[in-house]
Design a binder for these strands. Structure first.
Lengths: 124, 124
DNA sequence: GATACTACTATCCTTTTGGATACCGGTATC
DNA sequence: GATACCGGTATCCAAAAGGATAGTAGTATC
């Protein structure tokens, strides 16, 4: 963190940067896919099985996005019926810190909201 | 960050936590509103003016969300035509770290993608 | 009493996101 | 040669998010 969010015009840049980050991470499946791959490379059908409920169209699209952002690589092997393997890149690790913090903050926030809802509000 | 994302079943919890965090921050206007308020409390119309382009319906909805998540307070003053003031809560500061990092990561990522696009890919 | 400002809400419409279903070309299996 | 698996694509549809436009109740201004 370089400065606490403030000066009038750095704001525009900051918002754009944050929006970029949100953009590459948001959506229903990006994180689940990254986490599925975090235990090792996986093939298309295997991914589809671990993330039961994802349709091939969506999986295909998400993988393309992740590839463009250089979080995963796609490798085609010239096996009998060709096999395609998806794996995390080293660059994907640059997200670890931020993901870790989102995780901590999220847990904490959920607890907080749960407590409040007992005192009559709605969380999330 | 307590652990590097892994064990099979903590994953589900982690994903939920991350999803919560993404949820409270994502959307086109939440961050801009938080930043607009970071320079001090503001009234409805003033907010609408600083964030030119936001319609009252959306602003109203976003403010309600932010209020539910305890990032802003809504105070009604019994002035001549009543005035309503929105302000950041202390709790909203708990986001500073995470937002700071999203900002840094986003800037870095954009640079990276820009470089690559010169070598023929598309960013974001 | 017409106009204007504040803080919204209501209705309707567009865009984006996600999903269901079906299918394709290739290979391998029985 | 019928069935099945792999790695997808194509078409169509539903839900969610975002927005345009108009209107409301209340006050104050000229």
């Amino acid at each position: 963190m370089k400065q606490t969010v403030h000066t009038p015009e750095t704001c525009t840049r900051s918002i754009a940067a944050i929006r970029d980050t949100l953009y590459v991470l948001s959506g229903k499946w990006k994180l689940p896919i990254l986490i599925a791959l975090s235990s090792g490379p996986s093939r298309f059908k295997d991914l589809q099985r671990s993330l039961q409920d994802i349709t091939p169209k969506i999986l295909s699209k998400e993988l393309k996005d992740l590839e463009l952002n250089e979080f995963v690589t796609r490798t085609v092997y010239a096996t009998s019926p060709v096999s395609v393997e998806y794996a995390l890149t080293k660059y994907s690790q640059s997200l670890n810190k931020i993901i870790g913090e989102m995780c901590d903050w999220g847990l904490q926030h959920r607890k907080r909201m749960m407590n409040n809802s007992r005192k009559e509000k709605k969380p999330l």
